[in-house]
């Protein structure tokens, strides 16, 4: 991760502050920063979302686009399911070290993390509904995430943005009919209905998880670390929780230290406790974002519609 270089005095300040329950921006140890969510800004994608977690208009900024494609089934692939393919890329605009091949490592890390959380059955999405004709054709959802800015807490913002994008994804309806060809063999054929109004959402998207990252600083831990707090983090744990209060994935990060086992169970309990508030907050933001979906199209004259009202 792009990490700041802090002086020992500054590091000490942050660590002691966290141990006493104070954070640099005045938040409580379990408080998340301001979250801004927008959906539907990429018209060519089946679903898109942009999430910024940070204060005063600056923060970790992630853009996620979901594109659906029809794939022909090949031997060896699952016969009655669709698939999800994730890809995360960090743009060099986020940090200088992401230039050229510098972002390779973190790209792999985030892609695998995202794949672990949303890339299969454990995401809550009903992959069987993505099958068009068994053993013949299925939908593949390409989830492409672009990290535009890094100010701490990338994993969380990534999962928030992906959840929003998948909830906002609309797949065109597919009509399957049986066609008998000349030799009398009945085959199934499908047709994609090209109607912008006649689209369906993803089955099971409401069950998608949200992630929270707990950073251990000193002997305490905080949620949603800022850049400075991440620089003094010894170890962190990302926990993904579903709306049904199930734990979907846990992954530890950080090279300097491990966790005491008691701290681990405390963190998973806390993750579940704050999950309710997180989902409520997300739902409110998402509802607000969905409302604005159509409005922007009517105001092309206001410049930088992509940025405003971000």
């Amino acid at each position: 991760m792009a990490s700041l270089i802090l002086s020992p005095a500054e590091q000490d300040f942050i660590i002691r502050g966290v141990e006493k329950g104070f954070r640099g921006d005045g938040r409580g140890s379990l408080d998340r920063r301001e979250v801004t969510l927008r959906t539907g800004m990429i018209s060519q994608a089946n679903g898109s979302a942009r999430c910024r977690i940070g204060s005063l208009g600056v923060g970790t900024d992630i853009l996620v686009g979901v594109k659906a494609e029809v794939n022909t089934w090949a031997a060896g692939e699952p016969e009655e399911c669709g698939t999800i393919v994730c890809n995360v890329e960090c743009s060099p605009s986020a940090a200088q070290e992401f230039e050229g091949r510098g972002a390779d490592e973190i790209n792999v890390e985030l892609t695998q993390l995202l794949d672990r959380i949303v890339g299969g059955e454990q995401s809550g999405l009903d992959l069987r509904k993505l099958c068009i004709i068994p053993r013949q054709a299925y939908w593949v959802l390409h989830i492409d995430a672009l990290v535009l800015d890094v100010k701490g807490g990338v994993a969380d913002a990534l999962v928030w943005a992906t959840r929003a994008a998948l909830l906002a994804t609309k797949l065109p309806r597919v009509v399957v009919e049986s066609v008998t060809d000349d030799s009398g063999v009945a085959r199934a054929e499908f047709d994609v209905v090209d109607d912008a109004e006649d689209q369906m959402g993803l089955e099971g998207a409401r069950d998608l998880p949200l992630a929270a990252t707990f950073n251990q600083i000193g002997r305490r831990y905080v949620v949603d670390a800022s850049e400075q707090e991440e620089a003094v983090t010894q170890a962190k744990l990302t926990v993904a929780v579903s709306p049904k209060m199930e734990i979907c994935a846990i992954q530890k990060g950080g090279m300097l230290k491990g966790f005491a086992p008691s701290l681990l169970s405390e963190i998973t309990q806390t993750a579940l406790r704050i999950a309710k508030e997180e989902f409520a907050r997300f739902d409110a933001l998402f509802a607000e974002a969905s409302k604005h979906n159509g409005e922007l199209d009517e105001e092309p004259s206001t410049g930088s519609t992509f940025l405003e009202p971000f």
Partner: peptide, 10 residues
């Protein structure tokens, strides 16, 4: 100390 924990699945 637990130096790494990884869970995949619900």
């Amino acid at each position: 100390e637990i130096t790494y924990l990884l869970q995949q699945g619900k």
